[in-house]
């Protein structure tokens, strides 16, 4: 049915402009894409499970008081894990937000701006988290 494709894949019917599939090139960065969302998702899954169990399931009352938080976060195994969690979960979350924003059908230019802004948000988030961790770890 309908027209046949010529060699280039364009659909030509008489008196009609050819229609071909030619998506616009998107602005991409390393670490942005479906594969990364799966990889960071897998990491987040492990880390969030640890985080939830350690902070809310094994603790009496489901929440750590101040001393318990300090004891937890200064643990040499926990500190790198929680830092990694912060870095990865914010990347995964903002990458997901970017995908949802892109679904509103932005121009390539607008998409580039969104990508840069979210990258900035991620950097600020990580710096904020690291600062907070540093304050807690060095706390007397």
């Amino acid at each position: 049915m309908a027209g046949r494709a010529d060699e280039s894949g364009a659909l030509s019917a008489p008196g009609e402009r050819p229609v071909r599939w030619a998506p616009e090139e998107r602005d991409t960065l390393p670490g942005v894409g479906w594969g990364w969302q799966a990889v960071t998702g897998a990491l987040v899954l492990v880390l969030v499970t640890l985080h939830m169990i350690a902070n809310h399931f094994v603790v009496k009352g489901g929440l750590r008081d101040y001393q318990e938080v300090i004891a937890y976060i200064t643990n040499p195994v926990i500190l790198p894990l929680e830092t990694l969690f912060l870095v990865v979960v914010s990347w995964h979350g903002l990458l997901g937000l970017r995908a949802v924003i892109f679904d509103f059908g932005l121009s390539v230019r607008a998409e580039r701006i969104v990508t840069r802004v979210l990258l900035g948000v991620w950097v600020v988030t990580v710096l904020y988290g690291l600062t907070l961790l540093a304050i807690l770890v060095t706390h007397p």
Binding site: A2, G3, R4, A5, G9, A10, L11, A13, E16, V19, R20, W21
Partner: peptide
């Protein structure tokens, strides 16, 4: 309009 559909489908040929 099916033209966008066939533009994609026929590209695969």
């Amino acid at each position: 309009e099916m033209a966008p559909f066939f533009a994609r489908y026929n590209a695969i040929d």
